[in-house]
């Protein structure tokens, strides 16, 4: 019976991790609550008993050794995989049975570990794909180029440039996305995700392949995005300087289980985490 109650939307807040929500978000309801989340692939349990609560404007980190199930968690949150067990409440609403496209419209946007831009489209068109659901005109007015089409396309164009300007990329609007340098592609992916107007942004290894100075810039930008859009950001990252530098709550995953949760200091001194990363002390 206790299990069933969780399905009633927004009524029961899962117990764990409330303590790591930053103080400013405590008065508001959390943006994401996962309880008892899990998925099996055949006989293999990839993620189990994943409980987490993310505050409205929290920057949360998800870390763990390779193969711990971090990207699987992102795929569960965005419904690329349907979870075997448990519930995900987004802004108090149950996401059970939703498709990835519906989840996006509910407010989760993400980037990918291996960049997945639309390489043959221009930079601006990539951002406009993110704006797809905010442009409202019918196929008929699109084909006949009715005034509504012009108005909406103009608005989308301006919005796209505005979003690109966050990363100073407006001059690249007409470049082909696939021809951009690596770092710019990573930034464009973030812009495209932001264009969908999310309330929770998932970044899958945003600093992968970046040098220390690029990573430092990225850290500033992630905080800047959070402050500008007032959204929650959850990121998977192996670069500890980034995670420890900007994440307010950190969750450590190993073999599909959460082994530790807490602030940067708590995680750094947690013996279980050290053991997971470095092995047991002899």
């Amino acid at each position: 019976m206790a299990e069933k109650k969780v399905f009633e939307k927004g009524k029961m807040v899962p117990v764990p991790s409330v303590s790591i929500i930053p103080e400013r978000d405590l008065g508001k309801s959390p943006i994401l609550e996962c309880s008892h989340l899990g998925i099996d692939f055949g006989g293999l349990t990839a993620v189990n008993e994943f409980n987490i609560t993310v505050g409205r404007t929290e920057i949360a980190g998800l870390i763990g050794p390779n193969g711990a199930g971090k990207t699987t968690v992102f795929n569960l949150l965005t419904k690329v995989y349907q979870p075997t067990r448990g519930t995900i409440l987004l802004d108090g609403l149950d996401t059970h049975g939703k498709t990835p496209a519906q989840i996006n419209r509910m407010g989760i946007a993400r980037t990918f570990q291996n960049i997945r831009l639309f390489n043959n489209l221009s930079v601006e068109d990539n951002v406009k794909i993110g704006l797809h659901n905010q442009e409202k005109y019918s196929m008929v007015s699109g084909i006949l180029r009715l005034p509504k089409y012009w108005r909406q396309e103009k608005a989308a164009h301006e919005r796209a440039l505005e979003l690109l300007s966050i990363f100073d990329m407006q001059h690249m609007a007409n470049y082909q996305a696939g021809s951009l340098p690596y770092g710019a592609q990573r930034r464009l992916e973030i812009v495209r995700a932001l264009a969908t107007n999310p309330s929770l942004l998932l970044l899958d290894e945003p600093a992968a392949g970046m040098n220390p100075s690029e990573t430092a810039e990225l850290m500033e930008n992630i905080v800047k995005i959070r402050d500008m859009f007032q959204i929650a950001i959850m990121l998977i990252e192996h670069d500890m300087s980034l995670v420890m530098g900007i994440c307010e709550g950190i969750c450590v995953l190993n073999f599909g289980q959460i082994i530790a949760k807490g602030t940067a200091e708590e995680i750094q001194s947690n013996p279980t985490v050290i053991e997971a990363y470095l092995g047991k002390q002899q």
Partner: peptide
């Protein structure tokens, strides 16, 4: 926008649906 959505789907359906 629908035409662009078509081109996006033709390149990467997975990424397209995660963009809504």
């Amino acid at each position: 926008k629908l035409g662009k959505a078509m081109r996006a789907c033709s390149e990467d359906k997975g990424a397209a649906q995660l963009m809504g």
